[in-house]
Simulated scan of single mutants.
Amino acid sequence: MDLKDVGAIYPFQGSEVVMVIIGLVFWIGWHVLQTRHESAEIEADMAADRTGEETRKAIDRN
């Protein structure tokens, strides 16, 4: 018996390239969004530190 006579041996056969492209777009998009989020968070931390808010919170916790 030859495998070419059996037919598709796994689902979505032939769509590997499309799936890789979708995966790469998702992966790059996630990194872009994550970088933007982290940059905004760091900027907020830096702004809070410049105003002394974080320092006052740290002192009040002790």
Rank of each mutant, 00 (worst) to 15 (best):
S15H: 15
I21M: 08
I28P: 02
A40H: 06
D49W: 11
R56E: 05
M19Q: 09
A40K: 15
M1Q: 07
I28G: 02
F26A: 15
V25L: 09
A40D: 07
I28A: 01
G29F: 00
N62S: 10
V18N: 00
T51S: 08
V6H: 03
R61A: 15
V32S: 01
D45K: 10
A40E: 11
L33I: 06
E54S: 09
W27M: 13
F26V: 06
A48K: 15
G29H: 00
V17A: 09
T35H: 00
G14I: 02
G14V: 01
D45Y: 12
A44E: 14
V6C: 05
I59Q: 10
N62C: 04
E41R: 15
L24Q: 06
R56Q: 05
I9D: 13
L3K: 14
E53N: 04
H37P: 04
D49I: 02
W27I: 06
Q13H: 12
L3S: 11
W30I: 01
T35F: 00
I59W: 01
S15N: 10
A58Y: 10
G29D: 00
F26G: 05
D5T: 07
R61V: 12
P11E: 15
A48N: 13
P11W: 14
E41V: 03
G52H: 03
G7W: 06
N62M: 09
D45L: 14
M1E: 03
A8E: 15
I9A: 13
G29Y: 00
H31F: 11
E38P: 02
E16C: 08
I59H: 04
T35G: 03
P11Y: 12
S39D: 11
Q13V: 09
I9G: 04
T35V: 02
K57Q: 04
D2H: 05
R36W: 08
L3N: 13
A47E: 12
K57M: 08
I28Q: 02
H37R: 15
D2A: 09
A44N: 14
A47Q: 11
A48P: 00
V32I: 14
I42R: 07
A48Y: 12
F12L: 12
A8F: 14
E43A: 05
H37F: 15
S15Y: 15
L33A: 13
F12Y: 12
I22F: 09
R61K: 10
V6Y: 08
M46E: 14
A44D: 14
D2W: 09
I42Y: 04
F26L: 14
D60Y: 15
V6K: 06
R61L: 12
E43F: 09
D2V: 07
S39P: 00
A48E: 07
I59Y: 01
T35S: 03
G7F: 07
D60V: 02
D45V: 03
